[in-house]
Structure formats: structure tokens, C-alpha cells
Simulated assay, not measured.
Amino acid sequence: MKFKKSLKLILMALGCCISFGLAAQQRTSSAVNAGGGSFRNDNYQVDWSIGELARIDTRISDNKVLLVTQGLLQPDFWGQLVMVSDPGFAPGEVKILPNPVRSLLQVQFSLRQIGRIRCILYSAKGERVFQSQFQYYGYGYTQTINMTKLATGGYFLYVELEPVEGSVVRKGSFKIIKID
């Protein structure tokens, strides 16, 4: 019951935020994000803001360690982004290091299940830029992807495990940021 009340309040606040945002956009050509918040439970994550910048701008610090994007919501930016409804991977079973990446991306597998693993790296445009397949024996493996020649930007790494025993294929998609 408490969850339903919280969700109802959040949805009402979200509706108000959208209304105020639309009204502000009709009067001015740009707006500054004045506030917002986030709600998360085991099944859902909802993020909202009051007003958004009309322009989207990305800045990288001089030492190229910090990447800041303004003008859009960035919920759970560094976490796993599962884009499939099939069974996925548990936290810690697939680790992406480092992210953001400059040159070599390490994908560490620590699954207990034996099977064939397929890794496909897609650009933000949906172009396949890397693909590999290998037999996984259940004791750990690190796949290295050379991203040196790839353009700066966002990529998605699709990982699929086709187990030897059982018919449930496990799938996951991870957001990768390439910086120079």
C-alpha cells in the first residue's frame, strides 16, 4: 500500500513537471534544470526533472578523466543496462573495465555456467564494430577489445551465454563510453 502511494505521488509530480516544462518551453527558447529526483526499487527506476536545457553539450576535463554531459537525464550512468527481457547476468558475473575507456576494454567473465559466449560491440548508430565467440568453461575469462581506433562516443556491448546444459540463453547489454 505504501509503495502504491509513493508511486502515485511520483507520477503526479512527474505530470506536474511535464506540464511546467511544456509551459516554460512555449515562453522561452531554453530552460535550466531547476530540480528533479529519482525513485528506484527492485523492478523500476523513475527519473524526473523540472525544465531541461534546449541544447545538449558534452565537456571533457583537461586531463580527460571527467566526462560531463548537460541537457539530459543520466540515470545510473555507469551501471549495467539490460535491454533484453530474457534472463540476464547477476551483478559481478560480467565486469567491464575501464569504463570510460581510452584504448583496451577488458570484459571479465566470472560465471559458473559452462557454454558458448558471444560478444558483439555496436556503435551508437547500430553498426557492428567488434564480434567474438569462445567456449567458456566456468572458471573465469577476460576478453580484451581494442578500442584505440574507434571514435569517441557511446557504444553498446551485447553479451550472450548459450549454456551447454539447459536451454535458457542468458543475455545482457552494457553501455560503454569511449574517450580520447
Score class of each variant (00 low, 15 high):
residue 13 A to R: 15
residue 56 I to L: 08
residue 24 A to G: 14
residue 149 K to Y: 08
residue 81 L to S: 06
residue 73 L to Q: 05
residue 95 K to H: 03
residue 37 G to H: 00
residue 7 L to Y: 13
residue 56 I to F: 07
residue 17 C to L: 14
residue 46 V to P: 08
residue 97 L to T: 09
residue 89 F to D: 04
residue 67 L to N: 11
residue 117 I to Q: 00
residue 94 V to L: 06
residue 142 T to P: 10
residue 68 V to Y: 14
residue 140 G to H: 11
residue 2 K to L: 12
residue 118 R to V: 12
residue 77 F to C: 12
residue 47 D to R: 12
residue 146 N to F: 01
residue 152 T to H: 06
residue 4 K to R: 03
residue 34 A to G: 12
residue 8 K to L: 10
residue 135 Q to N: 09
residue 88 G to N: 07
residue 76 D to L: 15
residue 159 V to R: 10
residue 4 K to E: 14
residue 9 L to C: 10
residue 150 L to E: 14
residue 5 K to L: 12
residue 153 G to H: 02
residue 164 V to C: 15
residue 50 I to K: 03
residue 167 S to R: 15
residue 157 L to V: 00
residue 6 S to Q: 11
residue 93 E to Q: 13
residue 44 Y to P: 05
residue 134 F to R: 00
residue 136 Y to H: 02
residue 71 G to N: 07
residue 163 P to V: 00
residue 31 A to D: 01
residue 91 P to W: 12
residue 87 P to F: 07
residue 17 C to W: 03
residue 69 T to G: 12
residue 149 K to A: 09
residue 170 R to M: 01
residue 35 G to L: 11
residue 50 I to F: 11
residue 85 S to F: 12
residue 157 L to H: 00
residue 40 R to E: 13
residue 101 V to G: 04
residue 153 G to D: 01
residue 32 V to L: 08
residue 124 A to Q: 10
residue 46 V to G: 07
residue 157 L to N: 01
residue 9 L to T: 10
residue 172 G to A: 06
residue 65 V to T: 07
residue 77 F to K: 10
residue 66 L to H: 13
residue 131 Q to V: 09
residue 21 G to E: 08
residue 48 W to S: 10
residue 138 G to F: 08
residue 37 G to V: 08
residue 56 I to T: 14
residue 20 F to W: 10
residue 117 I to A: 01
